[in-house]
Protein backbone atom coordinates (compact mmCIF):
# COMPACT_ATOMS: atom_id res chain seq x y z
CA UNK A 1 0.00 0.00 0.00
CA UNK A 2 1.30 3.43 -0.84
CA UNK A 3 1.69 5.95 1.96
CA UNK A 4 -1.50 7.76 2.82
CA UNK A 5 -2.62 11.17 3.95
CA UNK A 6 -3.98 11.50 7.47
CA UNK A 7 -6.43 14.29 8.28
CA UNK A 8 -7.22 14.85 11.96
CA UNK A 9 -10.87 15.87 12.25
CA UNK A 10 -11.70 19.03 14.18
CA UNK A 11 -15.07 18.58 15.89
CA UNK A 12 -17.09 19.01 19.09
CA UNK A 13 -18.08 15.31 19.46
CA UNK A 14 -21.35 16.07 17.70
CA UNK A 15 -20.53 17.66 14.36
CA UNK A 16 -17.52 18.13 12.16
CA UNK A 17 -16.09 21.65 12.41
CA UNK A 18 -16.40 23.44 9.04
CA UNK A 19 -12.64 24.04 9.04
CA UNK A 20 -12.13 20.29 8.56
CA UNK A 21 -13.73 20.60 5.11
CA UNK A 22 -11.11 23.21 4.18
CA UNK A 23 -8.37 20.95 5.52
CA UNK A 24 -9.78 18.14 3.39
CA UNK A 25 -9.47 20.35 0.31
CA UNK A 26 -5.74 20.69 1.04
CA UNK A 27 -5.62 16.90 1.47
CA UNK A 28 -7.49 16.45 -1.83
CA UNK A 29 -4.87 18.57 -3.61
CA UNK A 30 -2.15 16.37 -2.11
CA UNK A 31 -4.06 13.28 -3.15
CA UNK A 32 -4.16 14.60 -6.70
CA UNK A 33 -0.39 15.12 -6.70
CA UNK A 34 0.60 11.89 -4.97
CA UNK A 35 -2.22 9.45 -5.66
CA UNK A 36 -2.31 8.63 -1.94
CA UNK A 37 -5.63 7.88 -0.24
CA UNK A 38 -7.05 10.07 2.52
CA UNK A 39 -7.79 8.75 6.00
CA UNK A 40 -9.73 10.92 8.43
CA UNK A 41 -9.02 10.31 12.12
CA UNK A 42 -11.81 11.13 14.54
CA UNK A 43 -10.76 11.08 18.20
CA UNK A 44 -13.27 11.96 20.88
CA UNK A 45 -16.04 10.55 22.99
CA UNK A 46 -19.47 9.42 21.81
CA UNK A 47 -18.54 10.97 18.50
CA UNK A 48 -19.80 8.29 16.10
CA UNK A 49 -21.93 10.90 14.33
CA UNK A 50 -18.76 12.82 13.48
CA UNK A 51 -17.21 9.68 11.99
CA UNK A 52 -20.36 9.15 9.90
CA UNK A 53 -20.17 12.73 8.73
CA UNK A 54 -16.47 12.35 7.82
CA UNK A 55 -17.24 9.13 5.92
CA UNK A 56 -19.86 11.01 3.93
CA UNK A 57 -17.30 13.48 2.57
CA UNK A 58 -16.62 12.25 -0.98
CA UNK A 59 -12.81 12.85 -0.92
CA UNK A 60 -12.43 10.68 2.18
CA UNK A 61 -11.22 7.10 1.55
CA UNK A 62 -11.13 5.77 5.12
CA UNK A 63 -12.29 6.88 8.53
CA UNK A 64 -10.65 5.74 11.75
CA UNK A 65 -12.65 6.33 14.90
CA UNK A 66 -11.02 6.29 18.32
CA UNK A 67 -13.81 6.77 20.83
CA UNK A 68 -12.91 6.96 24.49
CA UNK A 69 -13.86 9.02 27.54
CA UNK A 70 -10.27 10.30 27.98
CA UNK A 71 -10.47 11.88 24.53
CA UNK A 72 -13.64 13.84 25.29
CA UNK A 73 -12.01 17.25 25.66
CA UNK A 74 -9.24 16.84 23.08
CA UNK A 75 -6.46 17.23 25.66
CA UNK A 76 -3.26 17.13 23.59
CA UNK A 77 -1.54 14.94 26.20
CA UNK A 78 -4.10 12.19 25.52
CA UNK A 79 -4.76 12.68 21.80
CA UNK A 80 -1.15 13.01 20.57
CA UNK A 81 -0.15 9.41 21.54
CA UNK A 82 -3.19 8.11 19.61
CA UNK A 83 -2.06 9.87 16.45
CA UNK A 84 1.52 8.69 16.96
CA UNK A 85 0.37 5.09 17.45
CA UNK A 86 -1.70 5.27 14.27
CA UNK A 87 1.29 6.66 12.34
CA UNK A 88 3.47 3.78 13.49
CA UNK A 89 0.98 1.29 12.10
CA UNK A 90 -0.35 3.15 9.11
CA UNK A 91 2.58 4.43 7.07
CA UNK A 92 1.35 7.99 6.67
CA UNK A 93 3.30 10.47 4.57
CA UNK A 94 1.33 13.57 5.54
CA UNK A 95 -0.62 14.60 8.64
CA UNK A 96 -2.95 17.57 8.27
CA UNK A 97 -5.23 19.36 10.65
CA UNK A 98 -7.01 22.69 10.76
CA UNK A 99 -5.11 25.66 12.18
CA UNK A 100 -7.77 26.04 14.88
CA UNK A 101 -6.77 26.42 18.52
CA UNK A 102 -7.31 22.65 18.86
CA UNK A 103 -5.10 21.85 15.88
CA UNK A 104 -2.42 24.34 16.83
CA UNK A 105 -2.33 22.87 20.32
CA UNK A 106 -2.20 19.25 19.18
CA UNK A 107 -0.12 18.93 16.03
CA UNK A 108 3.27 20.26 17.25
CA UNK A 109 3.03 17.73 20.09
CA UNK A 110 2.43 14.96 17.55
CA UNK A 111 5.25 16.20 15.29
CA UNK A 112 7.78 16.31 18.14
CA UNK A 113 6.82 12.80 19.29
CA UNK A 114 7.42 11.63 15.70
CA UNK A 115 10.65 13.69 15.60
CA UNK A 116 9.55 15.63 12.52
CA UNK A 117 9.16 19.33 11.83
CA UNK A 118 5.76 20.96 11.55
CA UNK A 119 4.81 23.36 8.79
CA UNK A 120 2.33 25.85 10.24
CA UNK A 121 -0.70 27.39 8.54
CA UNK A 122 -0.02 26.32 4.98
CA UNK A 123 -1.86 28.33 2.31
CA UNK A 124 -0.63 26.45 -0.76
CA UNK A 125 0.66 23.07 -1.89
CA UNK A 126 3.47 23.10 -4.48
CA UNK A 127 4.25 19.38 -4.46
CA UNK A 128 4.30 16.48 -2.01
CA UNK A 129 7.22 18.01 -0.05
CA UNK A 130 6.84 21.72 -0.73
CA UNK A 131 4.34 24.12 0.77
CA UNK A 132 3.57 27.82 0.97
CA UNK A 133 2.97 29.61 4.24
CA UNK A 134 2.73 33.21 5.40
CA UNK A 135 5.42 34.62 7.69
CA UNK A 136 5.84 37.99 9.41
CA UNK A 137 2.10 38.37 9.97
CA UNK A 138 1.38 37.71 6.32
CA UNK A 139 3.78 40.39 5.09
CA UNK A 140 5.81 37.73 3.31
CA UNK A 141 5.01 34.37 1.80
CA UNK A 142 7.56 31.57 2.21
CA UNK A 143 7.87 28.41 0.16
CA UNK A 144 9.39 25.65 2.30
CA UNK A 145 10.48 22.11 1.48
CA UNK A 146 10.48 19.36 4.07
CA UNK A 147 13.04 16.56 4.19
CA UNK A 148 11.12 14.61 6.86
CA UNK A 149 9.51 11.26 6.07
CA UNK A 150 6.24 12.50 7.55
CA UNK A 151 5.05 16.01 6.79
CA UNK A 152 2.98 17.43 9.63
CA UNK A 153 1.09 20.61 8.84
CA UNK A 154 -1.71 22.81 9.98
CA UNK A 155 -3.91 24.25 7.25
CA UNK A 156 -5.19 27.82 7.10
CA UNK A 157 -8.86 27.34 6.28
CA UNK A 158 -9.32 30.60 4.42
CA UNK A 159 -6.78 29.51 1.79
CA UNK A 160 -8.67 26.37 0.74
CA UNK A 161 -12.29 26.14 -0.42
CA UNK A 162 -14.42 23.68 1.54
CA UNK A 163 -14.94 20.27 -0.11
CA UNK A 164 -18.42 18.87 -0.69
CA UNK A 165 -19.62 17.27 2.53
CA UNK A 166 -22.06 14.61 1.39
CA UNK A 167 -22.51 11.78 -1.04
CA UNK A 168 -19.43 9.82 -0.02
CA UNK A 169 -19.30 6.39 1.54
CA UNK A 170 -15.85 5.86 3.00
CA UNK A 171 -15.22 2.70 5.00
CA UNK A 172 -14.99 3.10 8.76
CA UNK A 173 -12.85 1.33 11.31
CA UNK A 174 -12.64 1.63 15.07
CA UNK A 175 -9.46 1.47 17.09
CA UNK A 176 -8.81 1.47 20.80
CA UNK A 177 -5.30 2.67 21.43
CA UNK A 178 -5.88 4.98 24.32
CA UNK A 179 -4.07 5.61 27.55
CA UNK A 180 -4.79 8.38 30.02
CA UNK A 181 -1.58 10.41 30.29
CA UNK A 182 -2.24 11.51 33.86
CA UNK A 183 -0.49 14.77 32.99
CA UNK A 184 -3.46 17.07 32.49
CA UNK A 185 -7.06 17.38 33.56
CA UNK A 186 -9.99 19.24 32.00
CA UNK A 187 -11.80 21.52 34.43
CA UNK A 188 -14.31 23.61 32.50
CA UNK A 189 -15.12 25.39 29.33
CA UNK A 190 -16.73 28.79 29.02
CA UNK A 191 -18.02 29.14 25.48
CA UNK A 192 -19.48 32.39 24.30
CA UNK A 193 -22.96 31.48 23.18
CA UNK A 194 -24.22 33.52 20.26
CA UNK A 195 -26.90 33.16 17.61
CA UNK A 196 -24.62 34.90 15.15
CA UNK A 197 -22.43 32.88 12.80
CA UNK A 198 -18.89 31.95 13.79
CA UNK A 199 -16.23 34.47 12.72
CA UNK A 200 -14.22 31.96 10.74
CA UNK A 201 -17.20 30.73 8.71
CA UNK A 202 -19.35 33.89 8.42
CA UNK A 203 -20.10 35.25 4.95
CA UNK A 204 -20.21 38.80 6.29
CA UNK A 205 -18.23 40.25 9.21
CA UNK A 206 -18.58 43.65 10.79
CA UNK A 207 -15.71 44.59 13.11
CA UNK A 208 -15.13 47.47 15.47
CA UNK A 209 -11.88 49.05 16.57
CA UNK A 210 -10.64 51.60 19.04
CA UNK A 211 -12.92 54.17 17.39
CA UNK A 212 -15.90 52.42 18.99
CA UNK A 213 -14.72 54.06 22.24
CA UNK A 214 -16.39 51.52 24.53
CA UNK A 215 -17.78 48.01 24.65
CA UNK A 216 -21.16 49.61 25.29
CA UNK A 217 -21.19 50.81 21.70
CA UNK A 218 -20.73 47.34 20.18
CA UNK A 219 -24.52 46.71 20.12
CA UNK A 220 -24.54 49.28 17.29
CA UNK A 221 -22.53 46.76 15.27
CA UNK A 222 -24.55 43.80 16.55
CA UNK A 223 -27.85 45.28 15.37
CA UNK A 224 -26.44 45.73 11.87
CA UNK A 225 -24.91 42.24 11.98
CA UNK A 226 -28.30 40.74 12.80
CA UNK A 227 -29.89 42.51 9.84
CA UNK A 228 -27.54 40.81 7.35
CA UNK A 229 -26.63 37.58 9.18
CA UNK A 230 -23.10 38.75 9.94
CA UNK A 231 -20.59 37.88 12.64
CA UNK A 232 -19.14 40.63 14.85
CA UNK A 233 -15.38 40.99 15.17
CA UNK A 234 -12.94 43.42 16.73
CA UNK A 235 -9.43 44.73 16.28
CA UNK A 236 -6.69 43.98 18.77
CA UNK A 237 -6.86 47.61 19.91
CA UNK A 238 -10.51 47.11 20.88
CA UNK A 239 -9.65 43.90 22.74
CA UNK A 240 -6.63 45.43 24.47
CA UNK A 241 -8.79 48.36 25.54
CA UNK A 242 -11.16 45.88 27.18
CA UNK A 243 -14.15 46.67 24.94
CA UNK A 244 -14.80 43.04 23.99
CA UNK A 245 -13.43 39.54 24.61
CA UNK A 246 -10.38 38.19 22.83
CA UNK A 247 -12.22 35.49 20.91
CA UNK A 248 -13.68 38.30 18.79
CA UNK A 249 -10.24 39.44 17.71
CA UNK A 250 -9.51 39.45 14.00
CA UNK A 251 -5.83 39.68 13.16
CA UNK A 252 -2.53 37.89 13.10
CA UNK A 253 -2.77 37.11 16.81
CA UNK A 254 -6.50 36.45 16.66
CA UNK A 255 -8.68 34.89 13.99
CA UNK A 256 -7.75 34.84 10.32
CA UNK A 257 -10.89 35.46 8.28
CA UNK A 258 -11.79 35.81 4.61
CA UNK A 259 -15.53 36.53 4.29
CA UNK A 260 -17.30 37.82 1.18
CA UNK A 261 -17.76 41.15 2.90
CA UNK A 262 -15.66 42.63 5.72
CA UNK A 263 -16.78 45.94 7.22
CA UNK A 264 -14.11 47.64 9.37
CA UNK A 265 -15.59 50.32 11.60
CA UNK A 266 -13.33 52.68 13.55
CA UNK A 267 -10.34 50.48 12.76
CA UNK A 268 -7.17 52.27 11.69
CA UNK A 269 -5.71 49.23 9.94
CA UNK A 270 -2.59 48.18 11.86
CA UNK A 271 -0.44 45.61 10.04
CA UNK A 272 -1.47 42.94 12.46
CA UNK A 273 -5.18 43.53 11.83
CA UNK A 274 -4.75 43.61 8.05
CA UNK A 275 -2.96 40.26 8.28
CA UNK A 276 -6.15 38.74 9.62
CA UNK A 277 -8.65 40.05 7.06
CA UNK A 278 -6.94 41.19 3.87
CA UNK A 279 -8.03 38.09 1.97
CA UNK A 280 -11.68 39.09 2.32
CA UNK A 281 -13.42 39.44 -1.04
CA UNK A 282 -14.83 42.92 -0.45
CA UNK A 283 -13.54 45.26 2.26
CA UNK A 284 -15.43 48.32 3.49
CA UNK A 285 -13.82 50.85 5.82
CA UNK A 286 -15.69 53.43 7.86
CA UNK A 287 -13.37 55.82 9.64
CA UNK A 288 -13.35 59.52 10.32
CA UNK A 289 -9.60 59.72 9.70
CA UNK A 290 -9.16 59.92 5.90
CA UNK A 291 -5.47 59.07 6.34
CA UNK A 292 -6.12 55.75 8.14
CA UNK A 293 -4.17 52.88 6.51
CA UNK A 294 -7.35 50.79 6.37
CA UNK A 295 -8.43 52.88 3.35
CA UNK A 296 -5.35 51.55 1.52
CA UNK A 297 -6.87 48.06 1.39
CA UNK A 298 -10.58 48.92 1.31
CA UNK A 299 -12.65 48.50 -1.85
CA UNK A 300 -15.13 51.04 -0.50
CA UNK A 301 -14.17 53.71 1.97
CA UNK A 302 -16.48 56.05 3.84
CA UNK A 303 -14.86 58.94 5.66
CA UNK A 304 -17.39 59.62 8.39
CA UNK A 305 -17.99 59.63 12.11
CA UNK A 306 -19.07 56.08 12.89
CA UNK A 307 -21.61 57.32 15.41
CA UNK A 308 -23.44 59.01 12.52
CA UNK A 309 -22.77 56.33 9.91
CA UNK A 310 -23.78 53.23 11.91
CA UNK A 311 -27.36 54.28 12.71
CA UNK A 312 -27.76 55.33 9.08
CA UNK A 313 -26.42 52.00 7.89
CA UNK A 314 -28.75 50.15 10.22
CA UNK A 315 -31.70 52.08 8.82
CA UNK A 316 -30.59 51.56 5.21
CA UNK A 317 -30.48 47.80 5.76
CA UNK A 318 -33.87 47.60 7.46
Amino acid sequence: MSASILVIADHNNETLNAATLNTLQAAAELKEKTGSPITVLVTGNACGAVADQAAGVPVTDHVVLVDDAVLLNQLAENVAPVVVELCKEGGYSHILCAASTTGKNLLPRVAALLDVAQISEIVGIVDADTFERPIYAGNALATVRSSDSIKAMTVRGTAFAAVADNGGQAEQASLSVVAESGLSRFISEDKNISDRPDLTSARIIISGGRGMQSGDNFPMLERIADKVGAAVGASRAAVDSGFVSNDMQVGQTGKIVAPDLYVAVGISGAIQHLAGMKDSKVIVAINKDAEAPIFGVADYGLVADLFDALPELEKALS
Binding site: V116, A117, I135, V282, I283, V284, A290, Y300, L302, E312
Partner: peptide, 30 residues
Protein backbone atom coordinates in the same frame (compact mmCIF):
# COMPACT_ATOMS: atom_id res chain seq x y z
CA UNK B 1 17.17 21.68 10.13
CA UNK B 2 14.44 19.61 8.47
CA UNK B 3 13.07 22.37 6.27
CA UNK B 4 14.62 24.37 3.44
CA UNK B 5 13.28 27.75 2.47
CA UNK B 6 12.93 27.67 -1.30
CA UNK B 7 11.91 31.31 -1.67
CA UNK B 8 10.28 34.22 0.10
CA UNK B 9 8.07 36.64 -1.82
CA UNK B 10 5.90 39.63 -1.03
CA UNK B 11 2.20 38.80 -0.95
CA UNK B 12 -0.05 40.20 -3.65
CA UNK B 13 -0.84 43.81 -2.78
CA UNK B 14 -4.45 44.86 -2.49
CA UNK B 15 -5.41 47.90 -4.52
CA UNK B 16 -7.18 50.72 -2.76
CA UNK B 17 -10.74 51.17 -4.02
CA UNK B 18 -13.07 54.12 -4.11
CA UNK B 19 -14.20 56.58 -1.47
CA UNK B 20 -17.97 56.84 -1.29
CA UNK B 21 -19.71 59.99 -0.14
CA UNK B 22 -22.59 58.57 1.90
CA UNK B 23 -24.01 55.50 3.59
CA UNK B 24 -26.69 55.36 0.90
CA UNK B 25 -24.07 55.23 -1.85
CA UNK B 26 -22.14 52.56 0.08
CA UNK B 27 -25.18 50.30 0.46
CA UNK B 28 -26.10 50.84 -3.19
CA UNK B 29 -22.60 49.88 -4.37
CA UNK B 30 -22.47 46.82 -2.11
Amino acid sequence: PRLTTVKVVSPAEREAGVIVSSVAELVEKL
